[in-house]
Nucleic acid binder design. Sequence first.
DNA 1: CTCCAGGTTCCGG
DNA 2: CCGGAACATGGA
Length: 283
Amino acid sequence: MNFRAALAPVPALEFNLALTLGSGQVFHWLAQDDGFLGVIGDAPVYVEQRAETLWTNVAPDLIAHYFALDHPLPEIYRSFPTDPAMANALAFCRGLRIIRQPAWECLATFITSSMKQVAHIAQISHTIRRRFGARVSFGENESFAYPSAARLAELSETDLRACALGYRAKNLLGSARMIARGEVNLEELRALNDDAARAELCRLPGVGEKVANCVLLFAYERVRAFPIDVWIERVLRERYFAKKRKVTLKQLRDFSRDYFGEFGGYAQQYLFHHARSSRRQKS
DNA sequence: CTCCAGGTTCCGG
DNA sequence: CCGGAACATGGA
């Protein structure tokens, strides 16, 4: 591919690109050549990793910001609790970073994530992008930006159900319309503390505590947010409450908030990705 | 065919 | 606050 001759370098210490893109926090990147093809906002992006350097067609600053290359991983690792489950997850996920996604596309994809496998979420994301998003390209590469809330707001529920969304179509449409009308302002959320921002997100249809925490973590840099999905719930019950009979969701929430600390979101993502990877290996 | 997937919402104890 | 049920779809 001729475009690869013009790639610019971005220093990237303590970073594993493939691990980060494959960890279930973002869903639209596709493997191409020795790297990945995707979109950041409206910019078509190719990025590949060679040792401790990323090579890309876009501005290095854009890449460094999106992949959160400024997050202090050594400090984050030191903050992790020292228990066997966490140690295994860290050994498996070293170099995985929590990235900074654009808020709306992160929110929208997690609204469509409920009771869906990661592969399905990616499939839905690509269908919505291809049908309703702007086509962007550089050289021979073509990608599709995620359609804005205003764009989705003008569609019908039938249009979205045709993307295999099922009951999630109503939620995505309802949220897009509330945001398009200005009833919820995703930019103003940045000024709020975690609890206030979470409460604001939960006003949207299809957004409960888990989805709100994913959005806080993956789009708002709230690295303490600890989403509890079926995988993490299993990990917590099996590895941290092994002896207990009845453990409620509230107990799990309280425990994880206190136990995993100021970078709990990182701990959560490492436990999540490790659990999911090792489970799929077995079967 | 059955089971499950990065849940949310509503409803009765 | 807690447990159950309904809600769509597709892969294993």
